[in-house]
Simulated scan of single mutants.
Amino acid sequence: MSETHFSRLAGADFPPFEPGSVWLVGAGPGGPGLMTLLGYHALGAAEIIVHDALVSPDILALAPSHVERIHAGKRGGKPSPLQADITIRLIELARQGRRVLRLKGGDPFMFGRGGEEAGALARAGIPFRIVPGISAGLGGLAYAGLPVTHRDTNHAVLFLTGHDETGAVPGGVDWPAMARAAPVLVMFMAVRHLPAIASRLLAAGRGADEPLVVVSNVALPTQGIVETTLAKAPDLADIPTPAIVVLGPVARYRRDLDWYVDEVRRHVFG
C-alpha cells in the first residue's frame, strides 16, 4: 500500500499520535486485513515500532519505510528479550520524545502482557493509548470455521494459557474447576504442554472422545489444522506454532464453516 493511504486516514477522526507517548496496538491474528483502522493509522504516524515475533512481515510492511523497527519478540524455548527490558526500552524511547508504537500480535490484553506494559507506563508518567486487536483465540478462529460460541452447543467459553511466566504448565490453575467451567476451552500457547494439560483435564472429568482442534498460523496462508480427541492429544507431534487449541463441541461446525481452506486452495492452485 502506498503512503498516500496514510494521509487519507490522517484526515479521518483519529486521535493524534503525540510525541513522547506509547500506543499499545493489537496487530490481529496474522493477516494484514484483520488489523483495525486505528492500528493502521498508528503505523503511519509512529516514529518507531517495537514489535513482537508474531507480527507478520506483511503488517510491518504497511508502515512507511523510514520508520525504525525494533524486534522484541518472545518465543518459547528460544532466546528472548526479558519483559522488564522491553518495558524499560518503551519508557526510554518515549522520554526521548518519540512516537512509540508497541505492536503486539492478536490483542494486547489477551495473554499479551499489555496490562503489565501499560501499568509500567502509567507508573512512569508516560502517556499511552490501548488499541485493541482481533485475538487469534477469539475472532481469529473464524478462519478455521470454529465459532467459539453457538446457541446449539455452548453459552460459555473459557480462555486460558498453556504456560506461566516460567514456561511451565500453570501451577495456580484449578484444573477441576476449569474442566467444569465451560463446554468450550480455548487454550493459548498450549502445544508444548498439551500432553500434561490433556492428562489434567481427563482426570478432572472431561470426556476422552471430546473433539480437540489445533489451529496453527491462524489467518495466514500457512494456516494448518489438526483434528483429534482429548485422549489422543498427547500423540500429536511436530505441530507448528504459534497455535491455538480448541476443546469442545464447536469443532463439529468445521464441516460446514471451513471457508478459508477452500479460499487458500483457490488462490494457490487456481
Rank of each mutant, 00 (worst) to 15 (best):
G270P: 10
L212N: 05
L9W: 07
V215N: 07
V245F: 08
A94E: 08
G270T: 13
G105F: 07
V268P: 08
N217M: 07
M110H: 10
R254N: 05
R266M: 10
L38G: 02
D107H: 01
T229H: 11
A45H: 07
S80Y: 12
V215K: 08
G115E: 07
V184L: 03
P81K: 12
R192W: 04
D152G: 15
G20H: 09
P16A: 15
G167L: 06
A142V: 04
V226H: 11
V250Y: 06
R192T: 15
L230M: 04
Q96F: 02
I225W: 03
L202C: 04
G205W: 07
L103T: 03
L93Y: 08
G115R: 05
L90N: 11
T228I: 04
V131E: 00
H41I: 01
I59D: 14
H193E: 03
E227I: 09
F159R: 10
D107E: 04
W23I: 07
G31S: 14
T161L: 04
G224F: 03
A142P: 00
V245R: 12
R95A: 13
D262F: 02
V173I: 09
D256P: 09
E117F: 00
P176Y: 07
G73Q: 11
V100Q: 03
F14A: 14
D152F: 07
V25H: 00
I239K: 14
G26T: 01
V50R: 07
D238N: 14
L62N: 12
E18G: 06
R151P: 13
L160P: 05
G73W: 07
R180I: 14
Q96Y: 04
T161S: 14
M1D: 13
W175M: 11
G172W: 10
L257H: 02
E117L: 01
E117C: 00
E116F: 03
H150C: 09
R98F: 13
G112M: 00
I48Q: 05
I126V: 06
L103P: 01
M189R: 02
T87W: 03
A156K: 04
R252P: 01
A42N: 01
L54Q: 09
R206T: 13
S135C: 08
G112S: 01
H5G: 12
W23M: 05
D152R: 14
D13V: 05
W175R: 11
P57E: 03
A208T: 09
V191E: 07
P81A: 14
R200T: 03
I91R: 02
T149K: 11
L212Q: 04
A182E: 02
G115P: 12
L146R: 05
L201W: 01
T87L: 08
S7K: 14
A251V: 14
L160V: 10
T149C: 05
T153L: 06
N154C: 15
I239S: 15
V186N: 02
S21I: 02
E3M: 10
L38A: 02
D235P: 13
T36A: 04
G105R: 08
A190K: 14
G39I: 00
P183M: 08
F269V: 15
P19D: 05
A237T: 15
S135A: 14
H66F: 09
R98K: 15
P79I: 12
V246H: 09
H193W: 08
G248Q: 03
R8D: 08
G31V: 06
H155T: 15
S65V: 15
